[in-house]
Amino acid sequence: MLLTPVATIGRSTLAMLSGIGRIGLFFLATLAAMLRPPFYLREFGHALLTIGYNSLPVVGLTALFTGGALALQIFAGGSRFNAEEVVPSIVAIGMARELGPVLGGLMVAARVASSIAAEIGTMKVTEQIDALVTLSTDPMKYLTVPRVLAATLSVPLLVAVGDSIGIFGGYIVGTGRLGFNPAAYLKNTTDFLEVWDVTSGLIKGAVFGFLVALVGCYFGMNSGRGAQGVGRATKSAVVTASVLILAANYLLTELFFTA
């Protein structure tokens, strides 16, 4: 009786470790499948469209409002020690280094990891994955590789667009609401923003895109039976992808800015 909580913790820990191991093996299988032909260019193009292009509105809107709110917050905080003029540069650096990739990644996780997991999960429960195999088509190459590659390439582009829109959001609020001179705002933005601020965010975007699609595919491929199984796979994909994005963001920030 006394050991029950310990046993529960032990079971949960073992389940978590075996889950990490399975995702690790899936990651290696995906890398192996990426390197060997055939390559499905049509599926890759379709994935680029659905993952990248179709995520533009949600990423753009998120960035616009975040940039605006960031300008207001920095202005309010900066006015405590007469440093209001840092608004343009901090908005730009904050968007490029952190908020652009992280919020963009999280929005893509919500939109894309869920849809990939639901689509592949439904394919699994309706035997479409088995049908692919019987038609001499490797599901890893046909379903996983195009999605993972498309997300890895398109999320940095989404981040770049998100950064620009976020900075523009800060500009609108800065010039329209906080009384900044438009030319001075732009000059402050460009003077202090460095190339590495932007490229580090784009690298983060690529890592986040890879994680989102990998996790979506993993949970879809391992979906349980029926509507409940697909629902659980979808939920797990979104939660896992979001947590992995935040954890990877911390590790990458350590690597890029404290080394």
Binding site: E127, Q128, T134, S136
Partner: peptide, 14 residues
């Protein structure tokens, strides 16, 4: 697998 054809229970169409 090229030697086989299969009709699935729910058709399993893509």
């Amino acid at each position: 697998l090229a030697r086989f054809g299969m009709l699935f229970q729910g058709a399993a169409l893509f």
